[in-house]
């Protein structure tokens, strides 16, 4: 497992050299893009992290989590990641804000932290993608797109808990 990152980096630079590109220039170009991405998401992240912090400090998230706990317990689903699962298809940054909250409260290497990580890594901002792609070419009737995409999101929620349970317990 510890080989994955270093091996990928070596593969990339060697691949770049074989393809005769200026690897360091390419790297700095990409890093610049990374910086720009971060710059453009910064205001959103600040707004949403403040929001999520307020929700937690008010005690409302704990209240909702205890409210749904009997139902989620019945399905052996950790109720703590439910808010993130609901927000994930709607807002990527909002889900990231909740994800950092889970890391802070339970730890990045905890069971909940891992479930939330897998969920974040295996799903996308469904509503945004649908609106953007169909909106760009003026398609109004999207037929069964939404139901298929949401079913995929729901599957990702279940699979994140199932896979982490299998691999880490």
């Amino acid at each position: 497992m510890e080989y994955i990152i270093p091996a990928f980096l070596v593969f990339t630079v060697v691949f770049g050299l074989v393809k005769r590109i200026n690897v360091f220039d390419a790297f700095t170009d990409g890093a610049k893009q990374g910086l720009f991405t971060l710059y453009s998401i910064a205001p959103t992240m600040i707004g949403l992290i403040v929001c999520v912090n307020m929700l937690k400090a008010s005690g409302l998230t704990d209240f909702i989590v205890t409210l749904v706990k009997p139902v989620t317990d019945f399905f052996h689903f950790p109720s703590e990641i439910l808010p993130m699962a609901v927000l994930r298809p709607v807002s990527g940054s909002g889900a990231t804000a909740l994800l950092t909250g889970i890391y802070k409260d339970y730890g990045a290497d905890s069971f909940l932290g891992r479930c939330a990580s897998v969920l974040a890594g295996s799903s996308e901002t469904t509503f945004y993608a649908i609106t953007m792609y169909f909106g760009s070419i003026g398609i109004k009737k999207i037929r069964h797109t939404l139901i298929s995409a949401l079913a995929a999101d729901f599957t990702a929620v279940i699979m994140s808990v199932v896979t982490v349970s299998i691999f880490f317990t």
């Binding site: 590109i21 990409g30 971060l38």
Partner: peptide
């Protein structure tokens, strides 16, 4: 983030 974007750009420019 900059580190990963940088390496992914190498992969991209190299035609991966």
């Amino acid at each position: 983030m900059c580190m990963w974007s940088g390496f992914m750009e190498i992969a991209n420019k190299g035609g991966l």
